[in-house]
């Protein structure tokens, strides 16, 4: 059963990722991204990371992709891009080689190190336990980093407001 879930979720992830790369229309690419993010959330549930699965759906699929769609609609760039134009003739084969090379090297390293990863005690798959453990870790060991993310978010929001503000005529 676990394996069937793994295969189905992986198919979602890979199909969505290919959709992002290959779809000419930005709206379709954004919706393919949702498919990938849901697939990753299914993997998180299968691994017992229930809190991260929920956050993945809420923050990524709920907020980030909606932001993408919002920008696409706001700018009116939802026209399909002509993918047959290649500004640099060698770019696509080269990019495919780079992508396949990165993946291939990573897979080779993973398969090579397969037996050297020591077995730890697996985390409890119980949802309640996962959230408790994560909260304890977040608010004890990483509390400074956690508080600092609020500063990061404030700076990001203020910076974006400043960046996208239309300059009024007359003001310097």
């Amino acid at each position: 059963m676990d394996f069937v879930v793994f295969i189905l979720a992986s198919a979602m992830v890979i199909a969505g990722a290919l959709g992002v790369v290959l779809r000419p229309n930005p709206v379709h690419a954004a919706l393919s991204l949702v498919l990938t993010l849901f697939g990753v959330a299914v993997h998180f549930v299968a691994l017992g990371a229930h809190f991260l699965a929920a956050v993945q759906v809420i923050v990524y699929a709920g907020a980030i992709v909606v932001l993408f769609l919002f920008v696409i609609m706001l700018l009116g760039v939802d026209k399909a891009e002509d993918l047959s134009i290649e500004p640099f003739p060698i770019q696509r084969p080269l990019a495919a080689v780079v992508g396949a090379g990165v993946s291939g090297l990573l897979v080779a390293a993973i398969v090579g190190a397969k037996d050297t990863i020591p077995e730890g005690t697996p985390l409890g798959a119980d949802g309640d336990q996962n959230i408790r453990a994560l909260a304890r870790n977040l608010f004890s060991d990483h509390v400074f980093a956690f508080e600092f993310t609020s500063v990061l978010l404030i700076v990001a929001v203020a910076g974006t407001v400043l960046l996208t503000r239309k300059e009024k005529k007359g003001s310097a």
Partner: peptide, 22 residues
């Protein structure tokens, strides 16, 4: 292995596509 494949697809897309949103 799945995440290596996903990373490779993302890297290829970043190099191929020219629309900044994508």
């Amino acid at each position: 292995v799945l995440s290596a494949a996903l990373f490779g697809i993302g890297a290829t897309g970043l190099l191929v596509r020219r629309n900044p949103l994508i």
